[in-house]
């Protein structure tokens, strides 16, 4: 099943890099927004997650704050 995955990240944050790498390794397509360059998306991220820490993942509408591998796996239904 195809998932809709959005990542809000900054280029410098190690957990953002790891989160994106994890999705790539698992062949999950995602849209990445660099919230350090895109103020509208930064606002959207804060609005969705109620906080300002990166990364934020939106997986089919489920919001995950931080690189929480277990939650990401559960949301994507991967082992």
């Amino acid at each position: 099943m195809a998932h809709t995955v959005t990542v809000y990240s900054t280029p410098s944050c190690p957990y953002c890099i790891r989160a994106k790498q994890f999705l790539t390794d698992n062949k999950i397509e995602f849209t990445n927004y660099d919230v350090s360059a895109d103020q509208a998306k930064a606002d959207e991220m804060v609005e969705k997650s109620g906080q300002m820490g990166v990364p934020v993942l939106d997986i089919d509408g489920r919001i995950i704050v931080g690189f929480d591998k277990e939650k990401i796996k559960t949301s994507l239904g991967i082992a």
Binding site: S12, A37, G53
Partner: peptide, 17 residues
């Protein structure tokens, strides 16, 4: 915490441009 207060300038800094 994560509502403006952070322990990682490298990660979260750019959000405070």
């Amino acid at each position: 915490r994560n509502r403006g207060l952070t322990y990682c300038a490298t990660c979260d800094g750019p959000l405070f441009a």
